[in-house]
Design a protein around this nucleic acid. Sequence first.
DNA 1: ACAACAAACGCAACAGCGTTGCAAATAATT
DNA 2: AATTATTTGCAACGCTGTTGCGTTTGTTGT
Lengths: 141, 141
Amino acid sequence: MDRKIEDILKRNQLSVTSGRKKILELFLQQDGALAHNDIEKRAGEKFDRVTIYRTLQAFLEKGMIHSIPTSDNSIRYALCKDNCSEGHHHDDHVHFVCSACGNTVCLEGVMVPPIKLPNGFVVEQVEMLVSGVCKSCNMDV
Amino acid sequence: MDRKIEDILKRNQLSVTSGRKKILELFLQQDGALAHNDIEKRAGEKFDRVTIYRTLQAFLEKGMIHSIPTSDNSIRYALCKDNCSEGHHHDDHVHFVCSACGNTVCLEGVMVPPIKLPNGFVVEQVEMLVSGVCKSCNMDV
DNA sequence: ACAACAAACGCAACAGCGTTGCAAATAATT
DNA sequence: AATTATTTGCAACGCTGTTGCGTTTGTTGT
Ligand SMILES: [Mn+2]
Ligand SMILES: [Mn+2]
Ligand SMILES: [Zn+2]
Ligand SMILES: [Zn+2]
């Protein structure tokens, strides 16, 4: 596990530091998305807020994670499971926010449907954010 | 015009004050969405930041405006043109953010397509945010 | 038109998020 | 092991949004 994490960092040309290892580990042992604040809380050893911001920024630029805009105006981040290259990446799946547990997940299997806009509009990117009750919260009933 | 504005406020059971009239006027003479900051700048007479926040909150609760989450983590607000009742409302159209002029508009004619999620997920709300170049920016080329 | 009441406003203060500059600490390279 | 490059923690800052409270403004009834 620790080896795997170091490999990912090296593959992305990032020097391996304890902070980056810890944050990447958090993403790997989590199927949902993480906000800056989640990381701050879960990282047992204390890292400076700024370090977390810069780490997220670095992961983002390398295409290791992508950001998910949510309606409550808080940015979440999730691992890119497809092979996203540095720079832009294809984030063509739907994101789901559970109103019960608060989790945000990537629905990798659900593609954003094609959309037809009026003449004159050029589409660059489409984001689809679905809110509701997630699978595990429904099973708990 | 001034009469129309007062009518809207009264119809929504809001006492008519100079601040609310001004802000509502800004929304009416604008086809795109407005952020708190836009209002702060455009309101010629100076209103306190807090007043603008509270006014937006009031308009939102009355269903006069709806909020549009954007990828850059800034909340925009737009008039509800359909007859949205207090509380929830049907925001079933697509929102568009122009990367050239920065404007955010409601595409009232473009419905959010239906989406099928895996078993176990219950959908409450779907938001679709498209970014690209808007009609007027394309015509300027 | 006026008084009495209710609501909204401005101000001050505060908490949280995200950014930047810089010196110290840590990792990579030789 | 020494040198160099990178990252980190800290301090400081600006911006956004919220809350409490006293004052001002709007509404209601006479
Ligand atoms: Mn995703
Ligand atoms: Mn809209
Ligand atoms: Zn859930
Ligand atoms: Zn435009």
